[in-house]
């Protein structure tokens, strides 16, 4: 009993310690952002590896998610003779929820895990320590561009995911299910609000970008510098990001769409 309590206490303290370190880490990175402004090349490089290289999975997933949404939505709506509203259903689902959330989950699996593994390996092979001793601050040179690249990439990827999802749904609705293309677009235009739906979705994806990037770079930077430590950190990034994104999404939805 005592041992179980001790274990619980130790793991709570470890979690709180890690949370504290991650907040201090984020503050230091944010305070050092000035250097990144002087060297945009570093950011562009990371935008490519974090953002552009994640495009394929986002494009393919977006299309298929939209197509499946259209199919499922149609089977329900057609019973009520409301299949002309398929465009609204798909667009609202994608802009409000699926676009930001699924993109963040895919981003954690593709880019977040890669960031953690890269930074963790740099730590394990003393490259970060070497950089520090060359008077180059790894938090500014390595971490900051990656964090900002995640923050910029995720909303853009979520936008692409949503647009392609809508096109996928349009294709299935009009070509496969015989829904009228005109009503698909016009109902969507009438009922999807830019300010409420699109903007709230964008705000969500910006926050998810911050969370996904922060968790990925911190896990790499804070990992135990061994092969097992890097592997645990990489898994931890995907699991933690997924859980935090889903939890945060619930809170944001409750606040935004009451």
């Amino acid at each position: 009993m005592i041992a179980a309590l001790q274990k619980l206490g130790a793991s709570t303290l470890a979690t709180l310690g890690s949370l504290g370190r991650s907040v201090m880490f984020l503050l230091r990175v944010v305070l050092g952002l000035g250097e990144l402004a002087r060297r945009p090349g570093l950011l562009i490089q990371q935008l490519y590896s974090v953002g552009v290289l994640t495009l394929v999975i986002i494009v393919v997933s977006g299309l298929f998610v939209g197509m499946v949404l259209a199919l499922q939505g149609y089977y329900t709506l057609v019973d009520f003779g409301a299949e002309q509203s398929l465009g609204v259903l798909v667009a609202l689902s994608l802009t409000r929820e699926l676009g930001p959330v699924v993109t963040a989950l895919l981003f954690a699996g593709r880019a977040g895990s890669a960031l953690t593994a890269e930074i963790g390996l740099m730590k394990a092979t003393e490259q970060l320590a070497g950089m520090e001793m060359m008077a180059v601050d790894p938090e500014r040179r390595i971490i900051a561009p990656r964090l900002i690249a995640a923050l910029i990439s995720l909303p853009l990827l979520a936008g692409i995911f949503t647009v392609l999802g809508i096109f996928g749904a349009y294709f299935v609705s009009t070509v496969m299910l015989g829904v009228d293309g005109g009503s698909f677009w016009s109902q969507m235009q009438a009922q999807v609000s830019f300010g409420d739906d699109v903007m709230n979705g964008m705000i969500k994806s910006v926050l998810f970008g911050l969370v996904a990037g922060w968790i990925a770079v911190f896990n790499g930077y804070d990992c135990v510098p061994t092969s097992h430590g890097v592997s645990r950190a990489t898994t931890g990034t995907v699991v933690t990001t997924s859980l935090v994104v889903l939890g945060l999404d619930f809170v944001l939805t409750a606040l935004m769409f009451d």
Binding site: T125, E126, A129, G130, M134
Partner: peptide, 13 residues
Amino acid sequence: RRRMGVLFQSGAL
């Protein structure tokens, strides 16, 4: 540190 060079055991390249 700019006035110091360090050779790490692993090379740290």
